[in-house]
Amino acid sequence: MFTRSIGVQNTLKCMEARRFVAQLTSIHAIPSTRTQPSQINHSVASTNERKSLLNRPGLLGIKKGMITWFMENGEQHAATVIEIDNCEVVANKTVDSDGYWSVLLGQIDKFKNIAPNDLKKFEEAGVSPKRHIAEFRVRDESGLIPPGTEIKADYFAVGQMVDVIGTTKGKGFAGPMKRWGFAGLPATHGVSKAHRSHGAMGGNQDPGRVLPGKKMAGRMGGKSCTVFNNQVLYANGDEGILIVKGQIPGPNKSFVKIRDAVKLYGKSLLKINQELM
């Protein structure tokens, strides 16, 4: 089905060009070959193979505030407290139905203002309706967890690294100094009413326009942000408390997603296959 008769065509071309030249074709020459079907890189299947993923889902939590944390050697660190409250598996997504493997989790029981369609989903899972629902992609089928399972804070081990995904605090319409850390214009030397503005915007006649992506004033914050490789300092499932070292995005009481550090523990299927070979 993938036969290519390149050899034959070439021979014909040669014959045409040298019609009047005596030529012998070797009996060992291969007139055609059967090639392997080429893999299409720009497809869902191969994208999934290339993507660096974890072998298990993460957790949902609520940022509760920051505290002082003392290490055993007396070192003192700022740490963030995350509450893990009734985080349960709501559903799973599979390659057959959705094209990829993932786990849908919900957190915090909610009993008011729930759409009937959503109620049906929760009933199927056998869990109370949830305030937040989020999805975690997993590498393969082994990462799926049956719906209705509660996952507690001690899912993470003390000392391991995690990534925390949250929405940053909204700063409103901010100038270029605050938004991009520009230096601003001088205080004196003839500068008038433009001390906090950006300077030049680019070339003049060439390119004759402001290039796309130019850093300018605009809406700042309120965007999704991931902090990578935060160490877990404390995890207690019964108390529902997870403490990570350092800062995480967003205000207190905000919804965050926590997962194993993808830069440390994440691997693509392609890489695993290469390692096996």
């Binding site: 009993f111 009937p116 109620l119 869990v127 408390i241």
Partner: peptide, 23 residues
């Protein structure tokens, strides 16, 4: 016939706020 809504899980820390409990 309404969909079943399951009872909530029991509150952790006897319902105490995370921060005060931890402090």
């Amino acid at each position: 016939a309404r969909p079943i809504v399951f009872a909530p899980l029991p509150p952790k820390r006897d319902g105490e706020h995370v921060m005060s409990f931890l402090q």
